[in-house]
Amino acid sequence: MGVILMKGNEAIGESAIIAGCRHYFGYPITPQNELPAYMAARLPKVGGTFLQAESEVAAINMVYGAAAAGARVMTSSSSPGVSLKMEGISYLAGAELPAVVVNMMRGGPGLGNIAGAQGDYFQAVKGGGHGDYHSIVLAPSTVQELADLTGKAFDLADEYRMVVILLGDGFTGQMSEPITLPKPSGRSFDKSSWSLSGAKGRDPHIIASMRLNPDNALEMLNLKLQAKYRQIEKSETLWESVSVDDAEYLLVGFGLSARICKSAVSVLRKAGVKAGLFRPITLWPFPAGQLAAVSAGKKKVLVVEMNAGQMVQDVRLSVGGAPVDFLGTLGGATPQVDAIVERITGHAG
């Protein structure tokens, strides 16, 4: 098919279908409406199911049911809607069910606005719902990466039987860029040992997160989850680094703010300032070790986010010696290249 110009939200939809997703449940909210619209048009043509749920809460629980039934399933929303889904995400974590949840973040708190923002880092990365759990959080920064990470998200969800959050923002979802649609990964996951399909010729399967029985059953479940999370921290971190080797100044950002940082690196380099960029692609697991190594010996680390300072906390925990500074924009405002340059050089670029 070659290179096509595609909108971010639609690229997620087509990539999900390529990855074998045939079930989508969602509820309308801007700025991600192109994704459900895309699924509504496409899924019936590939034998799939699109269902507009009565609420975000119902949608995530339909996802839970479809995941329990062994299907590759997805829902999408934007910040206020994802808050509503948090109950279901905790249940998915407790029942160890695989699902992909897309959050194209907008400005908050409350109803906020519909501009792109990054204020849900804490919610996605630190839990959001109740109980000790993690979701794998992927933070794409281009439409191509939205497409590529969608397939990756389904594979990770199935491999670890957990929720994978694709954490984008309104701008990235609305943006069109040339992309090459991904190919299916070819990986397959046998879910027949646990999924629900009717207990034909086998003992019944039960999908549940409640553990009331004795012998510390809930503690055992939690220990198992934590062991899984430690394994993921070891093997699934993703990141990108740009011009870091000789850099004296290191910018750190994710998603859209990382792209803006990339432009700032270019401007700084032109001005003879040795700057580089470290971009976590997995926000959980956070590439702490890699950032520690990359940031060693730098004069300054500047974290740029479209929020009041969320990922910067993980950066501070990761960086050894270098001083960590923060530049944030609020309420759907986007960081300006000039402001980043000025923060590094002390004067406008």
Partner: peptide, 24 residues
């Protein structure tokens, strides 16, 4: 805007396009 993107793409250039959206 889309036509600029498509035309420039056709000539091998990198492009991006972000519309205003929603209530705006």
């Amino acid at each position: 805007g889309r036509m600029v993107c498509l035309a420039a793409m056709g000539e091998g250039k990198h492009v991006s396009h972000i519309p205003s959206y929603g209530a705006e």
